[in-house]
Write a protein that binds this DNA or RNA. Structure first.
Length: 503
RNA sequence: GGUCCCAUCGUCUAGUGGUUAGGACGCUGGCCUCUCACGCCGGAAACCGGGGUUCAAACCCCCGUGGGACUACCA
């Protein structure tokens, strides 16, 4: 059977890091097995409707490169992929359950439920449970006569449809990650299947759609593990075969708490021990999508013994992925490794591609776009020293503008009494160079150093300072070559006048 | 509280009865070198505790402990 997986998020306003990983694993598993990856929007909670949430969701998934084979954007055999547009389907199947006696109407008001809760609490502080023990005392089609039910329905009394969980059953799931997990039905309550507003709850919609959409593998977060018995029972009632299940470990903050959007305003001012769960924040900060994908893939999965690679492309992940290698234990989200991976992916990028991306960054940052040929040379020099692509301009301004300031620390450390003399000598010598290129520059510098009986650093550092205003950057010879003779000489002459005043 | 899940360096992890417990990030010593990076070599750093089973346990079993999820007409 062809593998079909789905990512079924509910549009809450932002995409959670953990959600993205769930999407990724579903994608990887499907692609690994030449299967189909489906995106389904679980928007059955009208009270939590957030304007634009779905659009945001779609764009983040697309950004990550996890393009669904079927979903809201692309259509597909099983459209619509919005649960809010499939309500008749759920009503129909709920009715089926009702007809078979697997479900019942419940007319309890919120006050009735509240009373149940109170009573339960008085009897030993246990949380309330609408189940085989209590349903006999509530207002539902099990306790009311057929006529009463009919009247109530006809009168439009608000009601829900609940699943009638049997009292003595053991449900067992063979989770692909956790192995056999068993649940006793006495611990399961009579879950609401269809809400009083006519919308289904997750449990009904999920099972119905997974079946209808022919999902073969349900890969989702561990928070769903405890509702598996309800789902298993639903499949049984419908007479359907349940898909394979795999419950992923959770991802937590560095302090072990749950990742939450609360109290997080920016990635640069995170509360201690906390991390931003919103994928959009990382995109905004300028992380490479490859780095994010790579990092979250490694949060709970690894290629296995003997394979010590850390850096993976999406294609490589597809090739290597397997559910058997997914961990059981929760992971902590650590920015440090993400940052490292970010630099790694920048370093591995094809130079033309990187240049194109830098051009786009410069555009969004409203900087002037230099000639591509020149920019590409700069990009090449900066590639191994770029923590973030978006920092390109700030880290290499001096390739685009003459320095306006000279780092005081560097002036103090590198500017000596003979600096002016050496620089002027270099100006004179380099003026003679016909081809201004790194080996010629290096040769010239060596010549001067020898003639003046000074170490090479004595001349190189002041030149770097004079030309760039900083003490860090690419190799000086390459840097000067890219900058070009004219610019270098101009900057040196300016610096020779300005720097002495700073001492 | 109940049910369920989980437990190897600070973090991500390898490991499925016999290993000097391996790798990666981070930290750190050094090398490379004109600086900063990159890269390379080295170091510190872990099997939650207690019982079993076994000639032998990080690995299997039990009990603790700790963490977590669920316990909604939210997903």
């Amino acid at each position: 059977m062809k593998v079909r997986t789905r990512f079924a998020p509910s549009p809450t306003g932002f995409v959670h890091i953990g959600g993205l990983r769930t999407a990724l694993y579903n994608y990887l598993f499907a692609k690994k097995h030449a299967g189909t990856f489906i995106l389904r929007i679980e928007d059955t909670d009208r009270t939590r409707f957030v304007e634009g949430a779905t659009e945001n969701l779609l764009s983040v998934i697309e950004w990550a490169g996890l393009t669904p084979d079927e979903g809201p954007a692309g259509g597909g055999r099983f459209a619509p992929y919005y649960q809010s547009q499939r309500t008749e389907i759920y009503v129909r199947f709920a009715q089926q359950l009702l007809d078979k006696g697997f479900a019942y109407y419940a007319f309890d008001t919120p006050e009735d439920i509240e009373a149940l809760r109170k009573k339960a609490q008085e009897n030993g502080g246990q949380p309330p449970k609408y189940d085989y023990q209590t349903r006999g005392q509530m207002r539902n089609s099990l306790t009311m006569s057929a006529a009463q039910v009919k009247d109530a329905l006809a009168a439009g009394v608000p009601h829900v449809i609940r699943l009638k969980i049997p009292s003595e059953r053991v449900f067992e799931v063979n989770d692909l990650i956790r192995g056999a997990v068993t649940f006793h039905s006495s611990q399961v309550d009579d879950q609401v299947l269809l809400k009083s507003d006519g919308y289904p709850t997750y449990h009904l919609a999920n099972v119905v759609d997974d079946h209808l959409m022919e999902i073969t593998h349900v890969i989702r977060g561990e928070e769903w593990l405890s509702s598996v018995p309800k789902h298993l029972y639903l499949y049984e009632c419908f007479g359907w075969q349940a898909p394979q299940m795999a419950h992923l470990p959770l991802i937590f903050n560095p302090d072990g708490s749950k990742m939450s959007k609360r109290d997080i305003t920016s990635l640069t001012a995170l509360p201690a021990g906390k991390v931003d769960p919103d994928v959009a924040s990382y995109i905004k900060k300028g992380y490479e999508k490859e780095a994010i994908i790579n990092y979250i893939a490694l949060l709970g999965w690894n290629p296995g013994e003997g394979d010590e690679r850390q850096v993976f492309t999406l294609a490589e992940l597809v090739n290597e992925f397997s559910l058997e290698r997914v961990n059981k234990s929760a992971a902590i989200f650590d920015l440090k490794k993400l940052d490292w991976l970010n630099a790694q992916h920048i370093m591995r990028r094809n130079i033309d591609e990187l240049t194109d991306q830098v051009i786009q960054d410069l555009q969004t940052q409203q900087h002037e776009i230099p000639a591509r040929k020149y920019l590409k040379q700069v990009v090449e020099l900066m590639q191994p020293r770029l923590p973030f692509r978006t920092q390109f301009y700030d880290l290499s301004v001096y390739f685009f503008k003459d320095p306006e300031q000279y780092d005081p620390e560097v002036v103090k450390k590198r500017w000596k009494e003979d600096s002016i003399k050496l620089i002027l000598e270099f100006v004179t010598e380099s003026a003679k160079l016909e081809v201004y290129e790194k080996t010629a520059i290096e040769h010239t510098l060596h010549t001067i150093a020898e003639r003046e009986q000074v170490g090479l650093g004595r001349i190189i550092h002041p030149i770097r300072l004079a030309v760039s205003g900083t003490g860090a950057g690419p190799g000086l010879y390459e840097m000067l070559e890219v900058l070009g003779k004219e610019t270098v000489i101009r900057r040196l002459q300016t610096a020779v006048k300005k720097i002495p005043a700073l001492i």
